[in-house]
């Protein structure tokens, strides 16, 4: 009976989705027209998506980073106490993996930093760069399963970058008249050079650091599921 209801549900859903297809066409809403027209002139960024993410919809990005922070803290909270929790058995890393991971760690971090520093010029940005940094951390965790990230440092990185994001937004509010405004504070610079786009590269670097720290903390908690307090208890 349940299977039948499920099948009917899926069938109705499929018909509904399929009936939508003829209605859909290329969208040319007011906002997208405005952003494609004014994005470059307003911000001098080559990448329009970055202009939308960081500047026009920067407040949404702040909320999004907050949601990521909330979900990571939720996962940490759920997995915090270790009693009766099955831990993944540490398996020994092969020599090949260990050497490769140690050799690749620094280049991967530098590559992630490159991606988020050039977020306003090339595809990429804070989120992608942060993910690359987190995969560098992942390699370290794969090689040495007992290694713990320095929680104090991660907390500081995360808090400072989040604080910097809000502070930049408030400075924009004071100088340019709206939250995260890109007017008046910094010169927009020459298009397609590294120092262009006003506040946009600064904010994207902060977002990159924050996302990298959060995703690394997420991987750490999935691998170990022992928080800071638990760790200290074990030592005492």
């Amino acid at each position: 009976m349940k299977q039948l209801i499920g099948s009917v549900f899926v069938l109705v859903m499929g018909l509904f989705l399929w009936s939508l297809v003829p209605l859909l066409g290329p969208s040319a809403g007011y906002l997208s027209t405005y952003f494609t027209q004014h994005g470059v002139a307003d911000n001098h960024t080559a990448n329009l998506v970055t202009a939308v993410v960081v500047n026009y919809r920067g407040f949404d990005t702040l909320g999004e980073v907050l949601v990521l922070f909330a979900s990571v803290s939720g996962a940490t909270f759920v997995l915090r106490r270790r009693d009766g929790l099955p831990t993944a058995q540490p398996w020994p890393a092969s020599e090949f993996l260990a050497t490769g991971a140690r050799a690749l760690f620094a280049p991967l971090v530098v590559f992630g930093a490159y991606i988020f520093v050039h977020g306003h010029l090339t595809p990429g940005g804070g989120f992608q760069g942060g993910a690359v940094v987190a995969s560098a951390v992942l390699m370290l965790l794969l090689v040495n399963r007992d290694r713990h990230l320095p929680h104090g440092l991660m907390t500081w990185l995360e808090s400072l970058s989040g604080f910097g994001f809000v502070l930049t937004g408030l400075i924009g509010l004071a100088v340019g008249g709206s939250f995260l405004s890109n007017k008046g504070l910094m010169p927009l610079g020459e298009w397609n050079t590294l120092f262009s786009g006003g506040l946009i590269p600064i904010i994207y670097v902060l977002v990159g650091i924050k996302v990298g720290a959060e995703l690394s903390a997420l991987l750490d908690v999935m691998f170990h599921s022992t928080g800071d307090a638990d760790h200290q208890e074990g030592q005492a």
Binding site: S27, G29, S32, F35, V49, V52, R57, G125, F127
Partner: peptide, 9 residues
């Protein structure tokens, strides 16, 4: 359209 891309990102 860059707006949907920013959203999906």
């Amino acid at each position: 359209d860059p707006v949907v891309q920013a959203l999906v990102l």
